[in-house]
Design a protein around this nucleic acid. Structure first.
Length: 466
DNA sequence: GGAACTCGCCAC
DNA sequence: AAACGTGGCGAGTTCC
């Protein structure tokens, strides 16, 4: 390895990192406690209503008949027994241990309207759990999550009390409710800085695949677009066309990333087929013999016209796409994975660029993922340390308050906003690359900002003007 | 009465 | 040959 950090570098990074994160913890995050109390009461009312609705169903009466005084509508084992043993529904999805699944997807799949209130209840309960956790960990209006550096085997960070890194964002309603409790210091505003595609970029530093490097360096290229074109046989790709944009997302989240993490074409085919069919994945458990017209829609018609007439043929098509992906497009990456894995098997360990040795029993997916994930987080951590140091040296009023794997959050004084943003931009895109010579591609960050005294749920893209 | 387990679900 | 990586957390359950 050309760039070999030593254990002392790793030690320094974690030592300084722990101190910087502890300062963020100590500063804390302002919570609107009144909002929490009010909203929790509202959710409780909604939960009560949903429970009343459910208790009027015949399904619940049956449940009560079977379990008597032990009836608990939050019990998954009871529900599983009722559905699959007593009512004899055929399980369309099973858990890892082989039991009939009772998650929301499995329930929706059973197409039994009387189960809908349970799905609704689960979402309400999830919102309640997040808000209750935030509320429980708040003292005098400030919450102090702990950021840990010694729990993840990949050398990523983690957070607890509360689990600050898993507050809902994708579901808009849950996002608004949960992030609506989280505020900047009075008179301040929340600024969030996010590394774009940092795992792809640190990955490239290990495997050095020229085609991947090209995708990163040339802004006119787009690997997810190319993958969408190939998977769905689109000739005239146009990102502005909403269906094409949707298919690009499907290719990205249903093929490219899963393949990077070690998934394979059979699972990806299932996943993708469900995406456009808007059906739960488990429907495709057996997969074979499912004709495309069953799922309907333009895409099915189009693929049929292109000779892909059944699910089995789609799976076969994806097998060819996968071979092309690993043996032509990213063959250098592929070779690196094999080599890295062979070396680990021989030595029993591997080293990261950032001064850490990973050892212990690992599978191939672990061995090729850990260095990428760990080094990506270490880039974030190094920047976090520098920004924290500069903030103290320059006596900013603004302070770092948290981290989510590839992003940082700064409680920002409006008068310092521009300087903070410029500093962050410098550290993340310039200083980081000077510090670590093993980083062979540019780093790129995006920023989002909330207005003064507005909660985290209101963040909007923030463009730094030069 | 607590430890350890399963299941489910949120984030990256 | 095998078949998606990392966490935290709550609820229910089982075991000691």
């Amino acid at each position: 390895m050309e760039f070999k950090a030593n254990k002392l570098d790793g030690y320094q990074l974690l030592h300084q990192g722990a101190l910087a994160l502890a300062r963020a913890s100590r500063h804390g995050i302002r919570i609107d406690e009144k909002y929490c109390v009010k909203t929790l009461a509202k959710i409780d009312r909604q939960i009560r209503d949903a429970e009343i609705t459910f208790k009027q169903t015949k399904f619940y009466k049956h449940w009560q008949h079977v379990f008597g005084s032990k009836t608990n509508i939050h019990s998954h084992p009871q529900l599983s027994q009722l559905l699959y043993k007593i009512r004899k529904f055929e399980p369309l999805k099973i858990t890892k241990t082989g039991a009939g699944a009772t998650d929301s997807e499995a329930l929706l799949l059973l197409n039994e309207p009387e189960l809908d209130p349970i799905v609704h209840l689960r979402k309400l309960k999830m919102q309640k759990d997040h808000l209750a956790g935030i509320s429980r960990e708040t003292i005098n209006g400030i919450m102090h999550p702990s950021f840990l550096l010694h729990t993840a085997r990949t050398y990523r960070g983690s957070a607890q009390a509360p689990s600050f890194q898993n507050i809902p964002i994708r579901d808009e309603e849950s996002m608004n409710i949960c992030r609506g409790a989280i505020f900047p210091t009075f008179g301040f505003q929340l600024l969030e800085i996010d590394f774009s595609g940092i795992e792809v970029r640190t990955g490239v530093c290990y495997h050095k695949d020229p085609n991947m490097i090209n995708y990163i360096m040339d802004p006119t290229t787009d690997m997810h677009r190319d993958q969408a074109q190939q998977i769905f046989k689109i000739l005239d790709f146009n990102k502005k066309y909403s269906e094409h944009y949707y298919l690009r997302q499907a290719a990205k989240n249903g093929f490219v990333f899963p393949e990077f993490y070690g998934d394979y074409y059979v699972a990806c085919a299932k996943n993708l087929a469900c995406r456009w069919g808007k059906l739960p994945q488990s429907k495709w458990k057996s997969g074979q013999g499912v004709e495309f017209p069953n799922v309907g829609g333009h895409l099915s018609d189009w693929l049929i016209s292109q000779g892909i007439k059944s699910y089995a043929q789609f799976e076969q098509h994806l097998k060819e796409v996968e071979e092309d992906f690993w043996y032509r497009r990213f063959r250098v990456y592929q070779r690196w994975k094999d080599q890295w894995w062979a070396e680990y098997q021989q030595k029993g360990y591997f080293d990261l660029y950032t001064g850490f040795r990973c050892s212990g029993l690992m599978g191939k997916n672990d061995a090729v993922n850990y260095p990428v994930q760990g080094s990506a987080f270490h880039c974030l951590l190094w920047c976090f340390i520098q920004i924290d140091r500069i903030a103290r040296e320059e006596r900013w009023k603004s302070r770092l308050i948290g981290q989510i794997h590839d992003s940082m959050i700064i409680d920002t004084h409006p008068k310092e906003l521009k300087h903070v943003a410029e500093t962050v931009h410098y550290v993340t895109t310039k200083a980081l690359l000077k510090h670590w010579k093993w980083i062979i591609v540019p780093m790129d960050t995006g920023m989002e900002l909330c207005d003064v005294d507005k909660p985290w749920s209101t963040k909007k893209e923030y463009k730094l003007v030069a």
